[in-house]
């Protein structure tokens, strides 16, 4: 079950119980079509090569405007990059550190323990560079929107020409999945914007799919661990409960 459907499901459950016609709350934009993510389901896991490609898309495209400040370079090890590769990504950026003995802040190459470098120092600086719009942090984006992964994929691939009856505001772009349809973000992905080392064609759809999977991982890096432990815990409780049922039957045998 996808979490973002929670409210709808709860309401639906109530309506079902009452056999009342259930009117969904009218959403402005169409519902993002569900995508087949490999990490869904009880045993679903992330697709490591896709995560690595997705990180490259983030690094080469999204990170120009969007921070992911809840991630550290050390987290890249989880994507299947080896330590040298992850340290290499870290060392590509200059991180502000200090103060040094003279009391000055200074830049040094990033380390594995550093958080992802933010493109802007603060929200004001981000708005100043982006025509007044604030590119949100993407660390939790896959969880911070209803059906976040499907929505993000729909958004990245949902740019179309504005219908003739729509007056686009200055600096805005038309996206059929964005609430209100007018979005400040220009279409971020262009064919072959990224070159994938594994030879995957960098079509817009491929890039969108991979970067969204990367976002889904970033929103909950412990998801695989959660499900792995969950399966064990459920099996254990199931066996214990069966045993407790047998015990209960035995105890009550004389009473019934």
């Amino acid at each position: 079950m996808r979490p973002a459907n929670a409210r709808m499901f709860r309401a639906g459950l109530v309506a079902l119980l009452l056999a009342l016609p259930f009117a969904a709350t009218a959403a402005e934009a169409p519902k993002p079509p569900p995508q087949p993510w490999s990490y869904q389901g009880v045993f679903g896991v992330f697709d490591r090569p896709a995560l690595q490609r997705g990180f490259l898309v983030y690094k080469q495209v999204c990170s120009a405007c969007h921070s992911m400040s809840r991630l550290s370079y050390r987290n890249l090890l989880q994507l299947g990059f080896d330590e040298a590769a992850a340290a290499g990504f870290a060392a590509e950026v200059q991180i502000a550190d200090g103060p040094n003995d003279e009391g000055e802040m200074y830049d040094r190459p990033g380390r594995l323990s550093d958080r992802f470098k933010k493109p802007f120092a603060n929200e004001k600086a981000a708005r100043a560079s982006n025509n007044g719009a604030y590119p949100p942090d993407l660390s939790l984006m896959a969880k911070a929107r209803p059906v976040g992964a499907d929505y993000s994929f729909a958004l990245l691939t949902g740019y179309i020409n504005a219908p003739s009856n729509v007056q686009l505001m200055e600096g805005m772009h038309y996206n059929k999945y964005f609430p209100g349809f007018q979005i400040a973000m220009a279409p971020p992905l262009a064919e072959n914007a990224v070159e994938f080392p594994d030879g995957t064609p960098a079509s817009i759809e491929n890039m969108a799919r991979d970067v969204v999977q990367f976002l889904a991982w970033a929103a909950e890096p412990k998801m695989e661990e959660r499900k792995r432990i969950g399966v064990k815990a459920m099996l254990f409780v199931l066996v214990l409960t069966a045993l407790l049922y047998a015990v209960k039957r035995k105890v009550w045998a004389a009473v019934h």
């Binding site: 979490p3 409210r7 499901f9 911070a144 929107r145 959660r226």
Partner: peptide, 16 residues
């Protein structure tokens, strides 16, 4: 719910 749909009872907005 805890292990397989932990955000079912939650709201996406609280991840902002």
């Amino acid at each position: 719910f805890t292990f397989f749909a932990p955000d079912f009872f939650g709201e996406p907005d609280n991840y902002i």
